[in-house]
């Protein structure tokens, strides 16, 4: 008697929870990021300082997490907006593909930047 629902069950709770957890993490990360970039603009923006930060293991870890979670949070958000609309399967797959592929590409780009140093 189910009403036209498609997809499998258990299709949202984990994603929903992670969206909130990553969101909370990003709030703290963002505060730190902004203090660094604007409270100390002289050191924050210079090439040397940036390279120095990227060379530190802890900073590297922080940036990797930041990029990964930020991308995931953003793209999961975009996908959840798109899913609000009724889509034909081919359109859904195409859009999902674009999101996953572009997200992965930029993740690789970001990660490789951080790992260079």
């Amino acid at each position: 008697m189910s009403f036209k629902h498609y997809g499998s069950r258990k299709s949202g709770s984990i994603g929903w929870l992670l969206q909130r957890i990553t969101g909370i993490f990003l709030i703290f990360a963002m505060v730190g990021h902004y203090i660094l970039m604007h409270y100390t603009p002289e050191t924050g923006h210079s090439y040397e300082q940036s390279v120095a930060r990227f060379s530190s293991v802890y900073w590297k870890m922080f940036y990797l997490t930041f990029i990964s979670l930020g991308l995931w949070h953003g793209l999961n958000g975009v996908w959840s907006i798109l899913r609000d609309f009724k889509m034909k399967p081919w359109l859904a797959i195409t859009l999902y593909g674009i999101i996953v592929i572009s997200g992965f590409a930029f993740w690789v780009l970001g990660v490789s930047t951080a790992l260079k140093f």
Partner: peptide
Amino acid sequence: RISGLALTAYLYVHIYALSNLTKGKEAF
């Protein structure tokens, strides 16, 4: 929604801009 979409788009730009770090001091 609007800010979320904008920030995601900006994130792409940001990652791209940061990748210039690898091109050396001058470019950056």
